[in-house]
Amino acid sequence: MKSTFAPASLSPAFYRSRRRIAPWLLNGAMLVVCFFVLIPVLATILTSLKQQTDVQRNPPVLFPCDTPDGQFSLNTCRWSVEGYTRIIEPRPNAEALLGFEYAGRMVSVYLPNTLIYAVSGSVLVTALAGMAGYVFSRYRFRARRALMIGILAITGIPLLTNLIALYRIGVFLRQTFPGYEERLYVIVVYVGFFLPFSIWIVKSFFDTIPRELEEASFIDGCTPASSLIRIVAPLAAPGLTSAFLMAFVGIWNEFIAGYLLVGKATLRTAMFGLYDFIGQFVIGYQVLAAGCIMVAAPVVIMFLFFRKTFFRAMVEGALKG
């Protein structure tokens, strides 16, 4: 990038030569950057596929493929899925689906819980943010500005500040109401946490839809409500999708709220489970690595499929907000 002082009188050949070299160099540099960014992920995948004896080697080995005399040989690779089986704990059971039941808490309890929280939470966030974002984008009323700034200010309350109060409110609810549903409380809390950001994203997407379309629909006899459902909602689908995806990933990855607010062991989240593993598998590094992969894989795959939607949502959310 840094070049010597180049007066305007330099020949066109000089510029051409610069252009020809630059992409080659830049591609090389970017590949190096990508490699360094991915090292932690790749190393974790490799660790998750080792045996107990291979994760406890000093000095450590990257590939469990060395012969006893220290030679590298592909024939001696000792790959293993032990880390995964210790988490999943499959037990043969003729009556269960596929002939196995899965006894590991991560598979039977934590991941299903997280899926429930993430799906229901993000559906609610999307619905609420869709309605609120529409109003902020289309209507002009006196309290609009105040409300929008209020919502932005809410994002300034640290999570832990709210959690101290929400924790005590949860304890109070549990003691007062016998039929208290912890799961519902956690979902509502997640909705509250991810709503402000989503409203901003959805609003900025609505802002890009021309008003003329709606006005035309009014002339054709639509009420505002039916115009919202028939004309605007389909056009706003990309915005709503991004709100949904961002909220889904956010809730899936959320740790501290789930950790503090969920009391019942059967309602704990996947991130809690993973954190719990640190104390449980003190030297089972391959188990910890396998746990990381299992918990992260769903959202990583989701991201790879919808990456453009994610990118757009993030830029909109950060810059317009």
């Binding site: 960014v37 991915l38 932690p40 992920v41 990933v249 899936w252 990855n253 959320e254 740790f255 991130m271 993973l274 954190y275 990381c292 918990v295 992260a296 959202v299 990583v300 989701m302 991201f303």
Partner: peptide, 9 residues
Amino acid sequence: VPWVLSDVV
């Protein structure tokens, strides 16, 4: 990719 990973991971 690191962005979609959770803090705990």
